[in-house]
Write a protein that binds this DNA or RNA. Structure first.
Length: 567
RNA sequence: GCGCUCAUAGCUCAAUUGGAUAGAGCAUCUGACUACGGAUCAGAAGGUUGGGGGUUCGACUCCCUCUGAGCGCACCA
């Protein structure tokens, strides 16, 4: 929380005898700036004081009227609308950002705490398509948000690197694979082979048996199977890291399904010790009726092998023991809701107190992301098209990029194109299904990533032309324009937006804020000239410009977006 | 059949978690300075918040019901 609201909050806390925290939660901007800067709704006091909210508002307005911080307090119906003295508020805010820099908006609320994030988690030897975007980007942004709140963050990629599909991949390669092709285009080649396997298995039932045999060999440590698996896994990770680098996302560990193989026996024994298992149709299950779930969790199949549920229990226990997390977030699509309810319920029945600190951060489907041929759109295809579209605009701006080296132009196009895609997946609440369209994905006007980055580039441009960054305190008394004031108020919101985004696991809060801030700036930019005014006014505005640049850059960073200085 | 999620302007999304006259962008139409970058700004038009009940000072928000959509319901992940 910023100090800027402190005078306002303490004043109302005193007048109403409410806790400061409660007051902070109640204060809100009025529907229109003409009504005032902040509003205090009096409904909660009505019951306690046995008076109508309007009456309370009227009395409260009398009590808090004008002092150092507040210029006026007017009762409008059940609200007390407050107008602030702009200068002290602005002065405090600018000073705070000047002192804290990129740390403005961060907090220490997560100090000493640990959050584990499980996200992205694709299957190995498969293409990285746009279906993986949501988990990857939401997880990536949440990582940064929690780190910003002081948490120790552990980012885990629960890679799909085990199970019968691996046996199928080995079988396909042994039959039709090409070593040099594998070296040149490992993923593409493996995808071709995998698809061929599924085409041919209908006419050749022996293939499935062969695949099971290869997987059995892999499980029992057969050298040939193991070496092939390791090679495919390693090139898959290389390929994935390339995609993650484009998306500005990183992981602390690839702990795939294979990693937990050695723990499964012990895991099953632990579940059995809890006395919650049953044998049903030859399978070992955990009935969950007591938790209101009709479908049991399957611990071991009737053929004796295990499935994902057992591995997820093992993974959860591993994370609890090794990281002692305060929060374990699974950023996984909505389809797996039942599975996670089963998993968490089982962990609770096992008596783990940390089970209730596990959360399924689910998100909706993105529909219509298939190509005409029926396959999914590849990530690179989407990013490349976005980047090329950006290049058209950049190339049209001859004057700005005249002396800029080609490599730097490439960098800008990449930053903006990828930024547009990232922003596109974060600017709506994660639970709702969305419709993908190329028109929308490649529209860079209005509420988009480029709009926010463009505002940042203009801010940088002003600062570049001004020469040195503004230092020291500005004469904030000169910042009297409404557009300046609106921008200042918008800047002050940033810390609570970050807090909100963490509390709800909603990066979209930050995305929405970034647009609001960028808009407040462009309105200011349109109405207030910075350079070439009276030196003192120019300096004051420059100070506001630099503050805005810092905050917009922080917001973009939290969204895993780059902050180009020109575009 | 049961469960989860969703339904807001022509389209894509908001709405400070129960608060003031439901707001933005896209598309459409109209306008903008020989000044810091027009990927911009200002304005117009666009709504019975899927339908119907209920809860209360107040409901897009909570409850019930109906309709529609997406997803999931034991050996895939």
């Amino acid at each position: 929380m910023t100090r800027v609201f402190a005078p306002l909050i303490s004043l109302f806390a005193e007048a109403t005898e409410l806790e400061e925290r409660e007051v902070a939660g109640l204060l809100c901007p009025p529907p229109s700036a003409e009504l005032g800067d902040f509003a205090f709704p009096c409904f909660v006091l009505a019951k306690r004081l046995r008076k109508s909210p309007a009456q309370i508002a009227a009395e409260l307005a009398e009590r808090v009227d004008s002092n150092d911080a507040i210029a006026s307090a007017v009762a409008v119906g059940p609200y007390v609308n407050v107008r602030l003295h702009r200068a002290p508020f602005t002065s405090t805010l600018l000073e705070e950002v000047r002192n804290q820099g990129e740390q403005f908006g961060s907090s220490s609320s997560g100090n000493g705490k640990c959050v584990v994030l499980d996200f992205s988690s694709p299957n190995m030897a498969k293409p990285f398509h746009v279906g993986h975007l949501s988990s990857t980007i939401i997880g990536g942004s949440l990582s940064r948000l929690f780190a910003y709140q002081g948490y120790r963050v552990v980012r885990i990629n629960h890679l799909g690197d085990w199970g019968t599909p691996v046996g199928q991949q080995i079988t396909a390669f042994k039959r039709w694979g090409d070593g040099t092709e594998l070296d040149r285009h490992p993923i593409a080649h493996m995808v071709d082979l995998y698809q061929r396997f599924h085409r041919e298995k209908a006419e050749n039932p022996g293939l499935e048996e062969e695949a099971r045999e290869w997987f059995r060999k892999l499980e029992t440590g057969d050298k040939e199977a193991r070496e092939f698996w390791e090679h495919i896994r390693s090139v898959s990770i290389q390929e994935l890291n390339r995609a993650y680098a484009r998306l500005n996302v990183e992981f602390d560990a690839y702990l795939g399904e294979a990693f937990y193989e050695g723990m499964l026996q012990e895991t099953i024994e632990e579940v059995q010790k809890a006395g919650i298992t049953e044998v049903s149709d030859g399978a070992l299950i955990v009935p969950l009726d007591s938790k209101g779930i009709k479908t049991p969790l399957i611990l071991r199949k009737s053929d004796g092998s295990t499935i994902y549920a057992t591995r997820d229990i093992a993974a959860a226990r591993y994370r609890a023991e090794n990281y002692r997390f305060d929060l374990c977030l699974y950023v996984v699509a909505h389809d797996q809701e039942l599975h996670f309810r089963q998993l968490f319920a089982t962990l609770e029945l096992m008596g783990y107190d940390w089970a209730k600190r596990c959360v399924h951060v689910q998100f909706g489907h993105v529909h219509g992301m298939s190509t005409r041929k029926g396959g999914a759109i590849l990530l690179d295809e989407l990013l490349d098209r976005a980047t090329e579209k950006v290049r058209e605009t950049v190339m049209a701006n001859q004057t700005l990029f005249r002396d800029v080296p080609a490599a730097e132009i490439d960098e800008v196009c990449e930053a903006v194109g990828v930024g547009a895609v990232i922003f596109g997946t974060l600017n709506h609440r994660r639970t709702k299904d969305v419709e993908f369209s190329w028109d929308n994905a490649l529209n860079f006007n209005g509420e988009t990533g480029p709009y926010v980055q463009y505002a940042h580039a203009r801010l940088c441009s002003i600062l570049r032309k001004a020469g040195d960054e503004p230092r020291g305190a500005a004469n904030v008394e000169l910042l009297t324009h409404d557009a300046e004031w609106a921008l200042v108020k918008e800047l002050a919101r940033f810390p609570e937006v970050v807090e909100e985004a963490c509390a709800q696991y909603e990066p979209s809060c930050v995305a929405r804020y970034a647009v609001d801030l960028a808009r407040a700036f462009t309105v200011f930019y349109d109405q207030c000239r910075v350079l070439g005014e009276e030196p003192e006014l120019s300096a004051a505005r420059l100070s506001l410009v630099n503050t805005t640049r810092v905050v917009i850059s922080s917001a973009l960073h939290l969204l895993c977006m780059k902050t180009p200085e020109r575009m």
